[in-house]
Design a protein around this nucleic acid. Structure first.
Lengths: 190, 190, 190, 190
DNA sequence: AATGAATGAGGATTCATTCAT
DNA sequence: AATGAATGAATCCTCATTCAT
């Protein structure tokens, strides 16, 4: 719990921060992290100074983007897990994670690093996501829907992998489905 | 008209070119494409000028690295295909491709783009590789070792994906094997 | 026409102004004039906006700091001059000036410029200080305690110089005393 | 002895390096260290890149400037010491040091820090200068020309101090002479 | 052919100052 | 009056590429 929240943040400041985060997410994922900060600021309709006021470093901005995304995914996964029975929940979440992170070059890499780790700030959100994934996996295994010898590390690796695989199949949904099919089949017992 | 052939290249020049390519391969794959050209030149024991004489652009150097790698892989794949029966050859080549490209950040991405394509110069070598992969796939499918509905695009996607998955499992060979197992199982009929 | 007087200034505003001045004095003298205004504001417990309301420019703030210091020193010098006999007063004031300005990097420079001069606003206070120093010098010379050919410009120069000399002798009081001794001996007749 | 000299340096490179050093000396001493590197480069007739090739950091450039100056002064002081009898040599060197460093804002500060110290690279040259000054002082004291209780720290402090004093007396040579007179008188026995 | 010095556009970051709240 | 968010010019430094030696 974070009672010592950073401070309420004025309405306009909050708006700018959000804009920045949205724009950065979009820009980083479509064009990579090499995009100049200035361009991100411009796209968000603010000056560079504002960007740097909210995120003291370009890296901090990237981190914030990744954290937010992890949190969103984790939340949705939790919801899915609550509403659905284990087997179905597992596979639905698999797709969810892949779809939310695929097509996002650097983000995929960041997710990948959740297997090893990263910057302290990411720690928490990636840990949470890991925890959620572990639960889903365990549930699906108990329900007999996933081979029991599959562990968390390879699950994460497969998420990353399918994300990468999928990324270049954007134009071919049928092929994408076949990738899922191969992997899901491979994950099921026998 | 000059000689059509790209010039015989003096012995030392050829040596430099080869050194450069080796060093660049090593450096790009271990530290990413962000490494300054100057550093690559130094590591190869030549001046930057020499590097740029051989490769007019940093990108050209990267391309040459990728092309050479593709050619090597393709050649080994061809060898494997010739020496082994279709089913075995297919899975052996799958591993070969993954292992040769995995752990190579940017290279993986380059290979990935072979699914859609890239710079004209890569065309040929990636086409060759694609041809080889298509043959292997067809062979394995005729032998009943791979599900018939799997197509080339998703095969390539899976290669890229397993490469990505594998990249962060360097320290855990058992998990890596399980990833292969999942995907290979998923590729086989039933 | 507005009131000629600079406005009575609300109680809290006056308090802020004073705080700002104190903090700025401390910060400028210990860490140099390079310190960001924002930091000074924070240290004074106000927002930057408030700082700039009181001092329209960073330079204006620095100036106010210097002026206040000059005035303080001048006042103490006047007091000393009134209470003590000329010879003693002169040397005591010399020390006073040096000690109040020494160790204060930028301030020393500002004081130094009093020899040539500066911003209009400093004019008055530096003139006053100059007047006071001139009187002290004259008194000491009439009392036969200081060589008659020493003029105001070199007195100021020596004050600045001893300040500079002293600044790096903070840890060695004995050496500092010897510096004073050298200069005071040199100032006395024969 | 520096047998492992950094490398011969091509003629043009050496020329540029020297130009840069000269220009930087001039610019830093007349306008302070705040001057943009770009301006220094332009004044030296080279691009910024060249400046940074020779001096990897602005600070490194400043350091090089200071070192060169210290070395020059030390060399001249050594020469003076060799050619003149102790008493005279001491006072001549005092003036030399002051005149070479005075009027040079930041340089003075650097010299001053020789009392405490600085960046490793400066170490050597400032140590050499300190050694030279110590010899001169000892010689003059043995010759009975300087009070025996004066130590090296306060000598350095006085050099810095007279430099600072002198700096603002550029237009008044007579006053400057009187400053020297005061300090030299104070340094002599009785 | 090789070398490495020179170039300068480009990019991240800081900070005095303004202005909406 | 106070606040602190926004601004953007200014600055240091990097690096792909060119060119004199």
């Amino acid at each position: 719990m974070n009672d010592a929240s950073p401070r309420p943040l004025r309405a306009d400041a909050a708006r700018n921060r959000a804009r920045l985060l949205d724009v950065a997410t979009e820009v980083f994922t479509t064009r990579g992290v090499g995009v100049p900060t200035e361009e991100i600021a411009r796209a968000a309709g603010v000056g560079v100074g504002t960007l740097f006021r909210h995120f003291p470093t370009k890296e901090a901005l990237l981190e914030a983007v990744v954290v937010r995304r992890l949190e969103t995914i984790t939340a949705r996964a939790a919801q899915l897990a609550a509403e659905t029975e284990p087997a179905e929940a597992f596979f639905a979440c698999f797709r969810l994670v892949v779809e939310q992170s695929a097509g996002k070059q650097e983000f995929t890499r960041a997710l990948a690093e959740a297997g090893v780790d990263v910057h302290a700030s990411l720690r928490e959100s990636s840990d949470q996501m890991r925890g959620r994934l572990a639960e889903l996996l365990a549930g699906a295994q108990q329900a007999g829907a996933v081979r029991p010898e599959v562990g968390l590390p390879e699950l994460i690796a497969l998420l990353v992998g399918v994300g990468a695989a999928t990324e270049h199949l954007a134009a071919d949904p049928a092929a994408r489905e076949r990738v899922y099919d191969v992997v899901f089949t491979g994950l099921r017992p026998h």
